[in-house]
Nucleic acid binder design. Structure first.
Lengths: 206, 206
DNA sequence: TAGATTGTTAATCGATTAACAATC
DNA sequence: TAGATTGTTAATCGATTAACAATC
């Protein structure tokens, strides 16, 4: 029974399922089950079935799920059955790594714009994309209708950069700067900060 | 009432609180409240008070929290009132960015070992640390008693690298490879995969 | 004092799990 | 058919919130 609003925590697990299914597909697996998937991911099979049931019926009793089919459905649900253009702000060491990372393309994303405010970086080519002057950020993002941005600038600059992205029409921000940013309603932000994860784990070390 | 076992989800929020408090301290703020902290982080004040109450009483009625004091307490609770040595496996573009990132040191971590299996990378110096041959990984990690590892190798190699880290005594792994890895009981793993976050957000884009 | 904010309890809300009929 | 596994319901479990006495 596909329902109106799916809990965000459920949506957040779909990309994990998708990643596992893509790996299984690459391994040549044709069929899987909620149990097998759950074992791989450390999630209960009941939870996987419940999560999927929010979106439809994708399996067959007695058999399980067709890997390729479920993968396609998840790609559709997550809207990564297309390629999203992403603007990368910040061409430092991290921006460099992101620009060269080959893992975006086949998972629905393509960094098509890179900006930096350092004149020494502007004009460089990273992963085939020329670094543009950050001064042109709003104009170019707007013109190209880019809706997703990754922020890889120092913490001090992150809020201002986010503000300008939003002004230019960005609706989803992946923020690598170690700081919380405020955005208007309707804009989503997710955070990546390795230290947060490390500190979470050291709690459990004696 | 400090209690025996604190829910993991609560522990996971402490680094977020700590990050905000450190920023406030840097801003020169001496006092804050659960309300102010909550507004900055998009979390309810009740949740912040409840979370902290698992560990003790850190505030004053009518006044709030002393920023420096609460910060110190959180650093102690999370065990980042010291410096943890971290082994970085993988000296590609991402490893390079991590090795040069200045944000680890003042938050409790220091990359003191870097490994790569590519002979062309071995011997390079990244962020002041020489890249060692991955063949020596187990021996060196064990000898140096390093308990935390960051994995920044291709997905195909991640499980093997994790196995070897664990064998060498590593108890906490931050995995940047886009794949789930299996580890024995007692070893913690956290994941960083930007695509997971991007896919989570595109669900909400039309 | 009056106003503000904590720490904690109880109520609410939501997520996970267990169980099983349906059925491939 | 017998065995396996789904999708779903109901029960359980756990997390969040509201409310307020305590008190600075």
């Amino acid at each position: 029974m596909p329902s109106a609003t799916v809990p965000d925590i459920v949506v957040g697990r779909l990309p994990i399922y998708l990643r596992a299914l893509s790996l299984m597909a690459a391994e040549g697996r044709e069929i899987t089950s909620s149990q097998e998937l759950g074992e791989r991911l450390g999630i209960s099979s009941a939870q996987i079935r419940k999560d999927l049931s929010h979106f439809g019926e994708f399996g067959k009793q007695g058999t399980g799920y067709n890997v390729a089919y479920l993968r396609e459905q998840l790609r559709r649900i997550l809207k990564v059955d297309r390629e999203w253009e992403v603007a990368l702000i910040g061409a430092g060491a991290l921006g460099h790594a992101l620009a060269h990372y080959g893992g975006f393309r086949n998972r629905g994303f393509h960094i098509s714009l890179i900006f930096d405010s350092d004149p020494a970086k502007v004009g460089q080519v990273l992963g085939g994309i020329e670094v543009l002057d950050a001064a042109k950020m709003e104009e170019v993002i707007r013109r190209r209708r880019v809706r997703i941005a990754m922020i890889a600038v120092p913490a001090e600059a992150a809020q201002e950069v986010a503000d300008r992205c939003v002004k230019a029409g960005v609706q989803a921000i992946l923020n690598y700067a170690p700081i919380n940013i405020a955005v208007p309603e309707g804009v989503r932000v997710e955070y990546i900060d390795p230290v947060i994860h490390l500190q979470h784990m050291t709690y459990y070390l004696d």
